[in-house]
Simulated scan of single mutants.
Amino acid sequence: MSLQMSGGVGGVGGGGMAAGDGGSPASPAGESSLTCPICHKRAVSKYFLSEHVRQHTGGFAFVCTQCNYKTNRSHDLKRHLQSRHFGELQRPHRCPVCPYRTTGALHLHAHITSKHPNYAHP
């Protein structure tokens, strides 16, 4: 008696999708509901399937209300808001040359010294 092992669907690489190669053994019940209707790739969950289908349709589920940023992932929008919009409140020291902002005056001084060595403070 010999054991044969087959590769699992998805899971490796963090993408959540596996190529629909057609050469896999019989599918477990319900797996067809996790298959992309456009390219027939299989997903490991409904979450990854809905994210994947949005790539085909070009739809964006999460849109920033303060600028034109759009994404398919809620955590990407949250990170965008923290770094681009709320950061102004958390980082009051602003570089006069570029968009860099920081929490402390010493960090700003180090930034200007290293990134803008020719800047003459007024």
Rank of each mutant, 00 (worst) to 15 (best):
G14E: 07
A120R: 11
A43N: 10
Q4M: 08
K78N: 12
M1P: 04
P28R: 15
S2C: 08
Q82H: 04
H111N: 04
V44W: 02
L34Y: 12
G13R: 06
T65V: 07
Y47R: 14
H40S: 09
G11D: 12
K41E: 03
G11M: 10
S32Y: 01
G8Q: 14
V12M: 03
A19I: 05
G87K: 13
I112R: 06
C39M: 14
C95G: 05
T71R: 09
K46Y: 01
P92T: 10
R73K: 15
R84Q: 09
K46T: 03
D21S: 14
D21M: 12
A110R: 00
A61G: 05
T35I: 15
D76K: 05
H85D: 05
R54C: 08
A120K: 14
H85W: 13
T103F: 01
R54D: 14
E51C: 15
G30A: 15
K41Y: 11
H111P: 04
M5H: 11
A26G: 06
H80K: 01
T65M: 07
I38A: 10
K46C: 01
Q82K: 15
R79N: 00
G15D: 04
G104D: 03
S45V: 02
E51V: 13
V12H: 10
S33V: 06
Q55K: 14
T57C: 10
C98K: 15
K70H: 07
P37A: 11
V9G: 01
L81Y: 06
L3K: 11
V53E: 15
H80N: 02
N72Y: 01
K70V: 08
L49V: 05
L49F: 04
H40E: 08
C36L: 05
P37C: 07
A43Q: 12
